[in-house]
Write a protein that binds this DNA or RNA. Structure first.
Lengths: 245, 245
DNA sequence: ACCTGAACACCGTTCAAGT
DNA sequence: ACCTGAACACCGTTCAAGT
């Protein structure tokens, strides 16, 4: 199940091109360009094979991509290629930075994060990133099995957070022209009210801690989650001088 | 943004029902029944408004549900209602058990887990569960803000894990009649081979730790993730006698 | 080798018209 | 109050036919 087309695939500029019937010479890269642009502008649900095809001239995509799933895989590969390499001094800092960096890249592309569920993304950038993260953790004393699985869970968490965040953001674009910020505030206010209306005698702890439940924006919650995971990994480092927190 | 229809909504058995035109009296509950059955049998992508409607007699759903999104929300509420209450002695055990329990319930319903992204699910069961989890953590000395956000991140992780697992499982149902187990093995073998074929001089740590990367099934990875999170939360408990985990 | 139009078997949603 | 058929504006994918 190799995922990427052989890189040697030449983008033959059809020497003839005589008829110059349509705007572009087609080819996988151009197709991915269009699909990614639609994702960036309107999200993955706005991408249809017909619409992508229409940007060139009606239908023929299937000569270049196997199907829609295949196209989305190529789009994801493109996005993964944008991810910066992990940087930082301690392994904790490297892991943390990279989580934030990859989150940012994903978030740039609307709900593209959901394309990464159930895939093992590949590409140079991915391998390089994994290698660097692994080495940082191993050097820091994190057991190899923990480090390896850490990569997995971090990627899953980042994807889930971005997708969730996008969906929330969508909920704030109700048809009304009102600013999403305002709608968002109202939305959370509504949730808070729903909770506050629950019978305190039945859910006392929940009610008494409502403010904590509603507290924090997406960034703070993501930051919290990453910190919890890093602390979890750190707890697996065999202690030499004791004390990690 | 209340999510559930008023529970007082009577399922009026239309006294007349004279014509007895179609199989069932319709009504939201019956509609959700059908939608959930399709989800259970074939997954969420198999659910279409037309197909759900067809089980009664063509089209009219829109008198009972606002749209497809609304229908899926009702389906999710139904599933959430199946979740057992958290049990266990220590807060760590309670959190761990409940993570596994909710994972199991979600996994019973194919890819229904993805319906939970971007929603704040409600319903008695949810509140009860949240209340119990919160109290357990607070009693265990977990700071309230950590406990509150913990609920959030745990739910997100469970949903992401189940969805990811389902997608992986899907990949193992290739058209061939071969047993998914076998296809799965082959699939991971393929991934392992892809990694193994990478230039060791460029990704030495990755290559040297391939066995760790490929190690463990879905259950082990989920278990690991939950343990990492719990350890992270535990590290936030102000130490009295020191030593947790 | 690539592109095309037409076709197949579907979608979600709306709406005037019925009972 | 609920149900219906028909319609609108779409889908993903296949395939014989073209160049």
């Amino acid at each position: 199940m190799s995922t990427t087309k052989p890189p040697g695939r030449v983008e033959r500029v059809r020497a003839k091109a005589s008829r110059a019937r349509r705007r572009r010479p087609l080819g996988v890269e151009a197709i991915v360009d269009v699909a990614l642009r639609i994702v960036d502008e309107e999200g993955t649900d706005a991408v249809s094979m017909r619409r992508v095809a229409a940007e060139f001239g009606p239908a023929s995509l299937y000569a270049h991509v196997a199907n829609k799933e295949d196209l989305f895989r190529l789009v994801l590969d493109r996005i993964v290629g944008e991810m910066p390499l992990p940087t930082g001094s301690t392994w904790q800092e490297i892991v943390r930075n990279h989580a934030f960096d990859t989150r940012e890249v994903m978030a740039r592309h609307n709900d593209a994060a959901k394309l990464s569920f159930g895939t093992v993304p590949n590409g140079e950038r991915m391998y390089q990133g994994a290698d660097t993260m692994l080495r940082a953790m191993l050097d820091g004393g994190v057991p190899p099995q923990v480090a390896a699985w850490a990569l997995d869970i971090l990627a899953l968490y980042v994807a889930a957070d971005v997708y969730e965040g996008w969906l929330m953001g969508q909920a704030f674009q109700d048809g009304s022209g009102r600013p999403p910020r305002e709608v968002g505030h109202e939305y959370f206010q509504g949730i808070a009210n729903t909770f506050a209306a629950l019978p305190r005698e039945r859910y006392p702890t929940l009610i008494d801690n409502l403010s904590y439940m509603m507290n924090g924006d997406g960034d703070q919650r993501f930051s919290f989650g990453i910190d919890m995971l890093i602390a979890g990994f750190a707890a697996q480092v065999p202690q030499r001088k004791g004390k990690q927190r």
